[in-house]
């Protein structure tokens, strides 16, 4: 069963029985050291920033980490790795638009002066050049779905050796998601972008996302090879017949998940920004004028 463990950077530790050998799909829980290390690292980062104390918002931060752990070790991940493009997509979206914004929202408020400076510098760069965060968020999404890259991200494409790509994928999604969310949810409210610009930011992100989703939905079956390959663990019958998710339906669902629900997340974000802005009391500072100010000096 050793080769099965290759699908992440390090050997997996099955929680319930051997990975892929569980009788039911829902039994395939798997803890992977790579992911555990990542989570440990991020927890450490929090403690480092907060000076070892749990501050207000820590729940959000660690909630994000727990979500990450769930996505990465639950049967969803098993399905995503071996059977379903759509499950893979759900995982992407949760990390990019769920975990990452939670981490950003949950960053500690009280930090040391040095850290404060670093955060301020990051916030400043990102709020003056919102396109940077935008490009990260959308770019990483597109990058991982270029067919060649996509297929390479799976161990099946590699004959031997340890494949670092899946871990890189998770990490890059998390980082890009955080950079994307930063100008909107960043820890320093003074450096958040103008809410109306935020609406534009999120709407264009939705367009970028929709285009990719549309492409995947209507692309002919077979441009992503991975999920067409052999049935590794004998669940093919159940998934394709029992659940009725054929390869074609699966690819459509993947594209549609990226297209429709993903857009709703962006749109809800837009509406949240707008609502806060419209109902804010006068004189309450909501944002600082950023470098890119489409509306000019008059808002």
């Amino acid at each position: 069963m050793k080769e099965l463990f290759l699908y992440d950077a390090f050997a997996g530790i099955p929680l319930c029985g051997t990975e892929g050998a569980a009788d039911s799909i829902w039994g395939n829980w798997l803890l992977m050291p790579g992911v555990l290390l990542l989570i440990a690292g991020l927890s450490g980062l929090y403690l480092l920033l907060s000076g070892g104390k749990l501050q207000k918002g820590a729940g959000l931060y660690f909630g994000g980490l727990v979500l990450l752990l769930l996505v990465q070790s639950s049967p969803l991940h098993f399905l995503a790795m071996h059977y379903l493009f759509s499950a893979h997509m759900v995982g992407h979206i949760i990390i990019l638009l769920g975990c990452a914004p939670l981490l950003v929202l949950g960053l500690p408020e009280q930090v040391g002066p040095d850290t404060q400076n670093i955060l301020a510098a990051v916030s400043k760069v990102l709020s003056q050049r919102p396109w940077l965060g935008w490009l990260c968020g959308i770019g990483v999404m597109w990058f991982w779905h270029v067919t060649a890259v996509f297929d390479a991200a799976f161990p099946a494409a590699l004959a031997t050796g340890v494949n670092l790509l899946p871990l890189l994928l998770t990490f890059s999604l998390l980082l890009a998601g955080a950079l994307f969310a930063w100008p909107i949810l960043g820890p320093l409210p003074a450096y958040r972008i103008n809410p109306l610009l935020g609406v534009l930011y999120l709407f264009t992100a939705c367009v970028g996302c929709s285009l990719l989703g549309l492409l995947i939905t209507f692309a002919p079956l077979g441009i992503y090879h991975h999920y067409l390959s052999a049935d590794a663990y004998g669940f093919d019958g159940l998934i394709r017949k029992g659940w009725g998710i054929t390869a074609a339906v699966d690819q459509q669902m993947a594209g549609l998940i990226m297209w429709v629900p993903c857009c709703f997340v962006y749109l809800s974000g837009s509406l949240y920004l707008l609502h806060n802005w419209l109902t804010a009391k006068d004189g309450q500072p909501l944002w600082k004028e950023s470098g890119l100010n489409l509306e000019g000096d008059r808002i």
Partner: peptide, 10 residues
């Protein structure tokens, strides 16, 4: 109004 406009494309 904004929600309608944004959703209109989806």
């Amino acid at each position: 109004g904004m929600a309608i406009a944004l959703l209109a494309f989806g």
